[in-house]
Design a protein around this nucleic acid. Structure first.
Lengths: 125, 125
DNA sequence: ATAGATGCAAAGAGTTTGCATAGGT
DNA sequence: ACCTATGCAAACTCTTTGCATCTAT
C-alpha cells in the first residue's frame, strides 16, 4: 500500500472519528458515508496493510470478531460492558503472570479482558 | 439430546482423552478414529447441546474459534501455543485486577489468555 | 412403532482472492 | 504511461439448517 487513495483516507478517518475499536463491518459503514463506492474487500485489504505497517492494531476479544484501533497506545487491556457492549481501554497490567506458565513453556504475550458494567450503565441501573 | 448414541459417546470420550480444550474440528478428528461415519454437523449439534445441559463449557479465546472443555473445572485460564495452535489449561490467577478498573465501573469477571510456545514446540525449535 | 438423532448436502455469514480496470504517481 | 489499489464476484472457511434415513427406546 504505497499510494494515498481516498479509500484509505476514509478508513483512517473512520477510526479517528470513532475513537474506539471498530470491526470491519463498522469501518465499512462509517467510511461509506463519505465514499459510497467503497467495497468490503478494500476495507479488509487496508486493515491488513495498516496493521502490517504499524498504523493500526488488531484488538482480539474472546468470543467476538476481530476489531481494530489506531496504533501507538501504550500496553493496555480492554473492559467490555455487558450492558452496552462498548469496549474501553484500561491502562496498567497485572502481576504474577509468569507463575501461571507450565514448565518448559515459553510465555511471549498475554491478553486480558475485563467484563462487567461501565460507569454509564452502573448509573443507569 | 435425550438418547444415548454412539456419536455422543465418542465425542465425550474425545474430551476425556484430550484433557484440553478442543475445537469442533479437533473433536471430529479424534472422535472419527472410533466412528468414521461421524459428521461435522453432528459434532456441532452435540457440542451445543452439551453446553446447554452443562456437561461442557465453551472456551472463548481472543481471535480464535470457540473451543470446548469438560465442565466443572476450578477457576483457570488458558495458554495458546503459537506454533501448534493447541490450547492448554493453566491453574491459578493473577493479582491486581481491581486496580485496572476505571472509577464507577463494576468488575464482574475476567478472561486471561497467555500466548507463547508450549513445551513440545520449544523442544522442537 | 415412534420420534429423536444422524449424515449429507446446501445454505449462510465472514473473509480472502482473481481479474479487469480506475486512478495515483 | 505505468503499475498499484480498487470493485466486483467467485472462492474459501466455518457454522447452521433442511430433509430423508437410521436407530434408541
Amino acid at each position: 500500500m504505497e499510494r494515498k487513495t481516498r479509500q484509505r483516507a476514509a478508513i483512517r478517518a473512520a477510526f479517528e472519528a470513532a475513537r474506539r475499536p471498530l470491526s470491519p463491518a463498522e469501518v465499512l459503514e462509517i467510511a461509506q458515508r463519505d465514499l459510497d463506492r467503497l467495497g468490503i474487500a478494500t476495507v479488509y485489504r487496508n486493515l491488513k496493510a495498516m496493521v502490517e505497517d504499524g498504523s493500526l492494531a488488531k484488538v482480539e476479544l474472546p468470543g467476538e470478531p476481530d476489531r481494530y484501533e489506531l496504533a501507538g497506545l501504550a500496553h493496555h487491556h480492554h473492559f467490555r460492558c455487558r450492558s452496552c457492549e462498548r469496549v474501553f481501554d484500561v491502562t496498567g497490567c497485572v502481576e504474577g503472570l509468569r507463575n501461571l506458565v507450565p514448565r518448559r513453556f515459553r510465555l511471549e504475550g498475554h491478553e486480558l479482558t475485563l467484563v462487567g458494567q461501565c460507569g454509564d450503565c452502573v448509573r443507569a441501573a
